[in-house]
Simulated assay, not measured.
Amino acid sequence: MNSSQPACEAIVLFSGGQDSSVCLAWALERYGRVETVGFDYGQRHSVEMQARKVVRRAMAERFPQWAGRLGADHILEIRGFGAIADTAMTAERAFELTDKGLPSTYVPGRNLVFLTYAAALADRRGAEALVGGMCETDFSGYPDCRRESLDALERALNLGMAQDFRIETPLMRLTKAQTWALAKGLGGEALVSLILEESHTCYRGERGARHAWGYGCGDCPACELRAKGWDGWVEAGRPALAS
């Protein structure tokens, strides 16, 4: 479906990071109305909560074809959930593998919780699609990023809410390099520039150092993955990926 054929409504899980920014553009290209939802779950840094405002505003200002489709933004406070996790995302802990072999940045069930809240919101807002940036190709080993997990959740949500939601994961089979290519395919160099300058990925909340791939500390797992993807895309000649 192209932008001349708007469909139903979607809610995008939007953190202000690279992946969710690309997902927002992807949804705006496909759906007649797109709302965003963000979660305050006690993150170590508030940088991403600020970044998401900037990215949303820039998306509407720089892409008039999408501006009329971008609807309300919702912030849900779930700090009680974040307090349970005790991970490197919510507390001052080292970035390392845990005894279970998972990264210390893994917040157990975070995507499942986010999507459940988003589904409850979608039920009230009349949205049919839930869009998230989960990915199996270039990911950090999080079990709730797997499509198998999301398929099971989709079925549970639809059974439990008597709905017919779709959990859309446009990045599921893409590498980070291909995610940059998708951004270019959706919005050209203007969207690449927006994501490069305004989105936030760094786990440490660092915005002082500007690298070729954007802002960040440069050595946390999120920065390393983003940098690797950028380098791979640049080395490939910065091609566009069909949206």
Rank of each mutant, 00 (worst) to 15 (best):
M1A: 15
M1L: 14
A7G: 15
C8Y: 08
E9Y: 10
V12P: 03
L13E: 01
G16C: 00
Q18R: 00
D19E: 06
A25Q: 03
A27S: 14
L28G: 01
R30G: 08
G32E: 11
R33M: 05
G38C: 02
D40L: 11
S46I: 13
V47H: 01
Q50R: 15
A51W: 00
K53R: 13
K53E: 15
V54L: 05
R56P: 00
R57M: 08
M59S: 10
A67V: 11
G71Q: 02
D73Y: 09
D73G: 11
H74T: 15
I75K: 04
E77A: 03
E77V: 10
I78C: 01
G80F: 07
A85R: 06
A85T: 10
D86R: 12
A88F: 07
A91M: 11
R93L: 15
E96M: 05
L97W: 10
D99Q: 15
G101Q: 10
P103N: 13
T105S: 06
R110E: 06
N111S: 07
V113T: 06
F114L: 10
A118D: 03
A119E: 09
L121N: 00
L121M: 12
D123L: 13
R124W: 10
D138W: 02
G141D: 09
Y142C: 07
D144Q: 05
E148A: 08
D151H: 07
A152C: 02
E154S: 02
A156I: 01
N158S: 12
L159E: 14
R166E: 10
T175D: 06
L182T: 02
A183L: 06
K184Q: 14
A190F: 01
V192Y: 03
V192W: 08
H200P: 01
T201F: 00
G205W: 00
G208P: 02
G214E: 05
G218K: 01
P221G: 04
A222D: 03
C223P: 11
E224I: 06
L225D: 05
E235F: 04
A236T: 09
A236S: 13
G237H: 07
G237M: 03
A240R: 02
